[in-house]
Design a protein around this nucleic acid. Sequence first.
DNA 1: CTCTCAAGTCATCGAACGCTGACTTGAGAG
DNA 2: CTCTCAAGTCAGCGTTCGATGACTTGAGAG
Lengths: 201, 201
Amino acid sequence: MQKRDREATRTRLLEAARLRFAREGYDATSVRDIARDSGVDATLIFRYFGSKKQLFDQATATAHSPDLLEGPQEELVARMVATIVDHDWTEYGGEHPLVAMLRSSAHEDARQRIRQEVCDTYVIALRDLAKGQDAELRAELLSAWMVGIGILRSVVATPALAEARAADLAPHIASVATDLLGRPMSGTVDQSRSEGESDQT
Amino acid sequence: MQKRDREATRTRLLEAARLRFAREGYDATSVRDIARDSGVDATLIFRYFGSKKQLFDQATATAHSPDLLEGPQEELVARMVATIVDHDWTEYGGEHPLVAMLRSSAHEDARQRIRQEVCDTYVIALRDLAKGQDAELRAELLSAWMVGIGILRSVVATPALAEARAADLAPHIASVATDLLGRPMSGTVDQSRSEGESDQT
DNA sequence: CTCTCAAGTCATCGAACGCTGACTTGAGAG
DNA sequence: CTCTCAAGTCAGCGTTCGATGACTTGAGAG
């Protein structure tokens, strides 16, 4: 067992960076803060990552989110909401990484990263489900709702939404998603499906 | 006419601060930036406002937005969307002040200001309109949609929403608002009304 | 003209910033 | 044990930050 472990230190720095950048945003976070959180010397950040900017890029590169496309189509929106509302995002300070990243949206790079994530993960998947005209716009409007829910829940901490679980939102999710996509959508994720899979047929 | 005009200088500083804080967020904005934009010495900021924080507070205190409660109830949501989408927010860098403020949401003060604005301006007005149970939650869900639309439009700049005007969103606004509030809502603001008296319905 | 006082400027403070190069330390190989 | 080399530390660079107090300037009053 190694006491001086390059990989472990790198990981600690990345984790601390992820948390700080999410909570405080890029500008309010200093490399010394991150180093202190990790219990290592700040110099190592530049040794390992080159610059604060590159650390930010690497720390926020991978959004450790579940695969939304896995499962029945009519539950897609419900899965998205569950990801935002019920998923454990303590690694990112308790907020969905997309929401946390908005704090750094003064930088074009971060903004572009957000756009990429929103379009690739939400808009495209929803657009493929939307029936009829205006599919793109309606997909974006539904994506906007997801993002808005994430923000009001954790950043603004509006009373009802802050306490709400995905199950509480289910009926409203279902009806709005059905309305905007023009096809019947479920508000909840069917849990019984995943049990039958556990015994590896 | 005065060459050295305290009030005019104060106003110039406030305007520059408003723009900078909106575009870059609190931390990425320096008092020297604001002073340079205003064409005055940075020292005056401390003379006139005491500190950077107090300048921020004063610059972002008044949201120069139109009164949303003025006009027929069924157009309330349409007015909200129009305020976010069509209103001229160049004073705040082209974004709704609420959206811009998210960039400074690492600071509890800013967060609280956002919460206040969202609750007072959006949630309460919508809750009073919502029929049936879960009024608060449904009002917040609709507010979340507004905020999300503002963000995807200007921050994320999603392709369809970035180009959309309020009129393009009207049908979807109408049906989602009607659905969530449980009463018929219009997607557009009736312009012909503005000439006559406001009718209370 | 001179005087006055507020508006505006200047020099600078101490702290914190991102970042660098020279140094120290410790675990494994011989 | 000693030697080696990568992991980790240290002192400090140059810059910028928010903030302060002493100073200069200029328009209006007399």
